[in-house]
Design a protein around this nucleic acid. Structure first.
Lengths: 121, 121
DNA sequence: GTCGGTAGTACACTTTTTCATACTATCTAT
DNA sequence: ATAGATAGTATGAAAAAGTGTACTACCGAC
Protein backbone atom coordinates (compact mmCIF):
# COMPACT_ATOMS: atom_id res chain seq x y z
CA UNK A 1 0.00 0.00 0.00
CA UNK A 2 1.54 3.25 -1.10
CA UNK A 3 2.28 5.80 1.60
CA UNK A 4 0.82 8.76 -0.14
CA UNK A 5 1.06 11.55 2.40
CA UNK A 6 3.30 13.09 4.94
CA UNK A 7 1.82 12.24 8.26
CA UNK A 8 2.58 14.90 10.83
CA UNK A 9 2.59 18.66 11.19
CA UNK A 10 5.01 18.78 8.29
CA UNK A 11 2.22 17.77 6.01
CA UNK A 12 0.08 20.68 6.83
CA UNK A 13 2.50 23.55 6.84
CA UNK A 14 -0.37 26.00 6.83
CA UNK A 15 -1.78 24.74 3.58
CA UNK A 16 -5.27 25.16 4.99
CA UNK A 17 -5.36 28.96 5.12
CA UNK A 18 -3.49 29.29 1.85
CA UNK A 19 -5.77 26.85 0.12
CA UNK A 20 -8.81 28.58 1.47
CA UNK A 21 -7.55 31.95 0.27
CA UNK A 22 -6.92 30.55 -3.15
CA UNK A 23 -10.41 29.15 -3.36
CA UNK A 24 -11.90 32.47 -2.29
CA UNK A 25 -9.95 34.92 -4.42
CA UNK A 26 -8.95 32.55 -7.17
CA UNK A 27 -10.81 32.86 -10.39
CA UNK A 28 -10.13 35.06 -13.32
CA UNK A 29 -11.73 38.32 -12.15
CA UNK A 30 -12.06 38.41 -8.38
CA UNK A 31 -9.06 40.38 -7.23
CA UNK A 32 -9.69 42.80 -10.07
CA UNK A 33 -13.30 43.26 -8.96
CA UNK A 34 -12.24 43.72 -5.35
CA UNK A 35 -9.64 46.18 -6.48
CA UNK A 36 -12.13 48.30 -8.37
CA UNK A 37 -14.69 48.26 -5.62
CA UNK A 38 -12.11 49.19 -3.01
CA UNK A 39 -10.69 51.88 -5.25
CA UNK A 40 -13.97 53.55 -6.16
CA UNK A 41 -15.72 52.68 -2.86
CA UNK A 42 -19.00 52.03 -4.68
CA UNK A 43 -19.56 50.49 -8.06
CA UNK A 44 -22.67 49.75 -10.02
CA UNK A 45 -23.03 46.61 -12.05
CA UNK A 46 -22.70 48.41 -15.38
CA UNK A 47 -19.60 50.30 -14.28
CA UNK A 48 -17.82 47.08 -13.38
CA UNK A 49 -18.97 45.55 -16.61
CA UNK A 50 -17.36 48.35 -18.61
CA UNK A 51 -14.17 48.30 -16.57
CA UNK A 52 -13.68 44.56 -16.81
CA UNK A 53 -12.89 44.41 -20.45
CA UNK A 54 -14.15 41.19 -21.95
CA UNK A 55 -16.20 39.82 -19.09
CA UNK A 56 -19.73 38.75 -19.84
CA UNK A 57 -22.79 39.70 -17.90
CA UNK A 58 -23.45 36.24 -16.59
CA UNK A 59 -19.86 35.70 -15.52
CA UNK A 60 -19.82 39.04 -13.72
CA UNK A 61 -23.08 38.19 -12.00
CA UNK A 62 -21.63 34.90 -10.84
CA UNK A 63 -18.38 36.37 -9.54
CA UNK A 64 -20.25 39.11 -7.69
CA UNK A 65 -22.59 36.59 -6.11
CA UNK A 66 -19.66 34.52 -4.94
CA UNK A 67 -17.85 37.53 -3.49
CA UNK A 68 -21.09 38.45 -1.78
CA UNK A 69 -21.62 35.01 -0.29
CA UNK A 70 -17.98 34.87 0.81
CA UNK A 71 -18.65 38.07 2.74
CA UNK A 72 -16.50 40.51 0.79
CA UNK A 73 -19.17 42.53 -0.97
CA UNK A 74 -22.37 44.18 0.03
CA UNK A 75 -25.12 44.41 -2.56
CA UNK A 76 -27.49 47.33 -2.24
CA UNK A 77 -30.57 47.23 -4.40
CA UNK A 78 -32.43 50.44 -5.09
CA UNK A 79 -36.04 50.02 -5.99
CA UNK A 80 -35.85 52.36 -8.95
CA UNK A 81 -36.55 52.26 -12.58
CA UNK A 82 -34.27 51.68 -14.37
CA UNK A 83 -32.83 49.26 -11.84
CA UNK A 84 -29.86 50.28 -9.77
CA UNK A 85 -27.63 48.00 -7.76
CA UNK A 86 -24.54 49.16 -5.95
CA UNK A 87 -21.66 47.04 -4.77
CA UNK A 88 -19.38 48.06 -1.94
CA UNK A 89 -16.98 46.38 0.46
CA UNK A 90 -18.37 44.94 3.66
CA UNK A 91 -16.45 45.44 6.89
CA UNK A 92 -14.89 42.07 6.25
CA UNK A 93 -14.03 43.16 2.72
CA UNK A 94 -12.39 46.30 4.04
CA UNK A 95 -9.94 44.41 6.20
CA UNK A 96 -8.75 42.80 2.99
CA UNK A 97 -7.71 46.14 1.51
CA UNK A 98 -4.16 46.07 2.91
CA UNK A 99 -3.64 42.72 1.23
CA UNK A 100 -4.88 44.13 -2.05
CA UNK A 101 -2.59 47.10 -1.68
CA UNK A 102 0.39 44.89 -0.98
CA UNK A 103 -0.35 42.88 -4.08
CA UNK A 104 -0.86 46.00 -6.14
CA UNK A 105 2.33 47.62 -4.95
CA UNK A 106 4.34 44.52 -5.68
CA UNK A 107 2.80 44.13 -9.06
CA UNK A 108 3.41 47.74 -10.04
CA UNK A 109 6.99 47.61 -8.91
CA UNK A 110 8.09 44.22 -10.10
CA UNK A 111 5.59 42.90 -12.60
CA UNK A 112 4.80 46.06 -14.53
CA UNK A 113 7.74 48.38 -13.87
CA UNK A 114 6.96 50.37 -17.02
CA UNK A 115 3.36 50.90 -16.11
CA UNK A 116 2.47 54.50 -15.36
CA UNK A 117 -0.03 54.72 -12.56
CA UNK A 118 -2.46 57.43 -13.69
CA UNK A 119 -3.08 58.48 -10.10
CA UNK A 120 0.42 59.51 -9.20
CA UNK A 121 2.42 61.80 -11.43
CA UNK B 1 -22.65 52.60 -32.05
CA UNK B 2 -22.53 51.58 -28.44
CA UNK B 3 -19.99 53.34 -26.25
CA UNK B 4 -18.63 50.32 -24.53
CA UNK B 5 -15.75 51.65 -22.50
CA UNK B 6 -14.68 54.45 -20.26
CA UNK B 7 -12.22 56.45 -22.25
CA UNK B 8 -9.70 58.12 -20.00
CA UNK B 9 -7.44 57.35 -17.11
CA UNK B 10 -10.54 56.38 -15.14
CA UNK B 11 -10.81 53.33 -17.30
CA UNK B 12 -7.47 52.01 -16.41
CA UNK B 13 -7.34 52.54 -12.69
CA UNK B 14 -4.35 50.25 -12.45
CA UNK B 15 -6.16 47.29 -13.90
CA UNK B 16 -3.02 46.42 -15.82
CA UNK B 17 -0.83 45.38 -12.86
CA UNK B 18 -3.71 43.73 -11.07
CA UNK B 19 -4.74 41.82 -14.17
CA UNK B 20 -1.18 40.74 -14.78
CA UNK B 21 -0.83 39.55 -11.19
CA UNK B 22 -4.02 37.59 -11.49
CA UNK B 23 -2.84 35.91 -14.64
CA UNK B 24 0.48 35.02 -13.05
CA UNK B 25 -0.61 33.70 -9.66
CA UNK B 26 -4.12 32.71 -10.60
CA UNK B 27 -4.77 29.05 -11.05
CA UNK B 28 -5.75 26.50 -8.54
CA UNK B 29 -2.34 25.66 -7.06
CA UNK B 30 0.14 28.43 -7.70
CA UNK B 31 0.13 30.38 -4.47
CA UNK B 32 0.12 27.13 -2.59
CA UNK B 33 3.14 25.90 -4.53
CA UNK B 34 4.94 29.21 -3.98
CA UNK B 35 4.08 29.02 -0.33
CA UNK B 36 5.54 25.57 0.08
CA UNK B 37 8.70 26.36 -1.83
CA UNK B 38 9.24 29.56 0.14
CA UNK B 39 8.52 27.79 3.40
CA UNK B 40 10.80 24.80 2.87
CA UNK B 41 13.33 26.70 0.71
CA UNK B 42 13.81 23.70 -1.55
CA UNK B 43 11.28 21.16 -2.68
CA UNK B 44 11.53 18.13 -4.87
CA UNK B 45 8.85 17.24 -7.34
CA UNK B 46 7.63 14.32 -5.31
CA UNK B 47 7.48 16.27 -2.09
CA UNK B 48 5.24 18.88 -3.67
CA UNK B 49 3.15 16.14 -5.18
CA UNK B 50 2.52 14.64 -1.76
CA UNK B 51 1.82 17.97 -0.13
CA UNK B 52 -0.65 19.12 -2.75
CA UNK B 53 -3.36 16.69 -1.94
CA UNK B 54 -5.26 15.77 -5.06
CA UNK B 55 -3.06 17.29 -7.75
CA UNK B 56 -2.02 15.10 -10.64
CA UNK B 57 1.45 14.71 -11.97
CA UNK B 58 0.73 16.43 -15.25
CA UNK B 59 -1.01 19.37 -13.62
CA UNK B 60 1.86 19.84 -11.19
CA UNK B 61 4.35 19.69 -14.02
CA UNK B 62 2.40 22.32 -15.90
CA UNK B 63 2.06 24.69 -12.96
CA UNK B 64 5.75 24.35 -12.14
CA UNK B 65 6.72 25.07 -15.72
CA UNK B 66 4.57 28.19 -15.74
CA UNK B 67 6.02 29.43 -12.46
CA UNK B 68 9.44 28.76 -13.90
CA UNK B 69 8.79 30.64 -17.11
CA UNK B 70 7.23 33.53 -15.18
CA UNK B 71 10.49 33.76 -13.29
CA UNK B 72 9.39 32.68 -9.83
CA UNK B 73 11.00 29.27 -9.62
CA UNK B 74 14.39 27.83 -10.36
CA UNK B 75 14.58 24.26 -11.49
CA UNK B 76 17.75 22.37 -10.63
CA UNK B 77 18.22 19.03 -12.32
CA UNK B 78 20.62 16.54 -10.80
CA UNK B 79 21.96 13.99 -13.18
CA UNK B 80 21.37 11.10 -10.86
CA UNK B 81 19.56 7.85 -10.91
CA UNK B 82 16.82 7.86 -9.78
CA UNK B 83 16.23 11.35 -11.15
CA UNK B 84 16.23 14.29 -8.81
CA UNK B 85 14.88 17.75 -9.51
CA UNK B 86 14.78 20.52 -6.96
CA UNK B 87 12.65 23.62 -7.07
CA UNK B 88 13.55 26.80 -5.25
CA UNK B 89 12.65 30.47 -5.44
CA UNK B 90 14.62 32.67 -7.81
CA UNK B 91 15.70 36.12 -6.67
CA UNK B 92 12.56 37.41 -8.32
CA UNK B 93 10.53 34.80 -6.51
CA UNK B 94 12.06 35.82 -3.21
CA UNK B 95 10.88 39.38 -3.50
CA UNK B 96 7.39 37.96 -3.68
CA UNK B 97 7.69 36.40 -0.21
CA UNK B 98 6.39 39.46 1.67
CA UNK B 99 3.25 39.36 -0.46
CA UNK B 100 2.79 35.69 0.32
CA UNK B 101 3.28 36.39 4.01
CA UNK B 102 0.74 39.19 3.94
CA UNK B 103 -1.77 36.88 2.29
CA UNK B 104 -1.01 34.10 4.74
CA UNK B 105 -1.30 36.33 7.78
CA UNK B 106 -4.61 37.71 6.61
CA UNK B 107 -5.91 34.30 5.80
CA UNK B 108 -4.90 32.84 9.15
CA UNK B 109 -6.43 35.69 11.05
CA UNK B 110 -9.64 36.28 9.17
CA UNK B 111 -10.36 33.33 6.96
CA UNK B 112 -9.33 30.48 9.23
CA UNK B 113 -9.42 31.95 12.74
CA UNK B 114 -9.72 28.49 14.26
CA UNK B 115 -6.76 27.13 12.41
CA UNK B 116 -3.79 26.26 14.61
CA UNK B 117 -0.53 27.03 12.93
CA UNK B 118 1.69 24.03 13.75
CA UNK B 119 4.80 26.21 13.73
CA UNK B 120 3.86 28.50 16.56
CA UNK B 121 2.67 27.15 19.84
C1' DG C 1 14.41 -10.91 -14.42
C1' DT C 2 11.68 -7.93 -12.21
C1' DC C 3 10.46 -4.67 -8.54
C1' DG C 4 11.07 -0.11 -6.61
C1' DG C 5 12.15 4.72 -6.72
C1' DT C 6 12.04 9.46 -9.31
C1' DA C 7 10.54 12.78 -12.57
C1' DG C 8 8.46 13.20 -15.88
C1' DT C 9 5.40 12.76 -20.99
C1' DA C 10 1.27 11.46 -23.78
C1' DC C 11 -3.29 10.91 -24.43
C1' DA C 12 -8.11 10.78 -23.79
C1' DC C 13 -11.57 12.10 -20.78
C1' DT C 14 -14.38 14.93 -17.51
C1' DT C 15 -15.37 19.04 -15.06
C1' DT C 16 -15.32 23.79 -14.49
C1' DT C 17 -15.18 28.23 -16.23
C1' DT C 18 -16.13 31.52 -19.46
C1' DC C 19 -18.46 33.31 -23.52
C1' DA C 20 -22.11 34.62 -26.96
C1' DT C 21 -26.53 35.41 -27.72
C1' DA C 22 -31.13 36.11 -26.84
C1' DC C 23 -34.46 37.36 -23.58
C1' DT C 24 -37.18 39.76 -19.33
C1' DA C 25 -38.97 43.74 -16.68
C1' DT C 26 -40.08 48.63 -15.97
C1' DC C 27 -40.21 53.50 -16.57
C1' DT C 28 -38.96 57.80 -19.35
C1' DA C 29 -38.33 60.36 -23.37
C1' DT C 30 -39.30 61.01 -28.27
C1' DA D 1 -45.36 53.05 -30.57
C1' DT D 2 -40.86 52.34 -29.85
C1' DA D 3 -36.13 53.09 -28.40
C1' DG D 4 -33.04 53.49 -24.49
C1' DA D 5 -31.40 52.70 -19.92
C1' DT D 6 -30.29 49.11 -16.10
C1' DA D 7 -29.62 44.71 -13.99
C1' DG D 8 -30.08 40.83 -14.58
C1' DT D 9 -31.57 35.27 -16.27
C1' DA D 10 -31.42 31.32 -19.51
C1' DT D 11 -29.31 28.41 -22.63
C1' DG D 12 -25.97 26.24 -25.21
C1' DA D 13 -21.32 26.26 -27.03
C1' DA D 14 -16.47 26.76 -26.50
C1' DA D 15 -12.30 27.01 -24.00
C1' DA D 16 -9.57 26.12 -20.04
C1' DA D 17 -8.32 23.40 -16.30
C1' DG D 18 -7.80 19.32 -14.16
C1' DT D 19 -7.84 14.01 -13.89
C1' DG D 20 -6.72 9.04 -14.75
C1' DT D 21 -4.13 5.82 -16.77
C1' DA D 22 -0.46 4.13 -19.11
C1' DC D 23 4.12 4.71 -20.43
C1' DT D 24 9.47 6.04 -20.49
C1' DA D 25 14.25 5.98 -18.61
C1' DC D 26 17.84 4.50 -15.50
C1' DC D 27 20.15 2.09 -11.83
C1' DG D 28 20.40 -0.86 -7.70
C1' DA D 29 18.66 -4.43 -4.82
C1' DC D 30 16.47 -8.87 -4.34
Amino acid sequence: MAENKFNNEETIARCVPMGRLQSVIGGKWKILILWYVSFYKVQRFGELMRRLDGITQSTLTKQLRELESDGFLHREIYKEIPPKVEYSLTEFGKIFIPVLQTMMAWSETYLCPDYQNPYEK
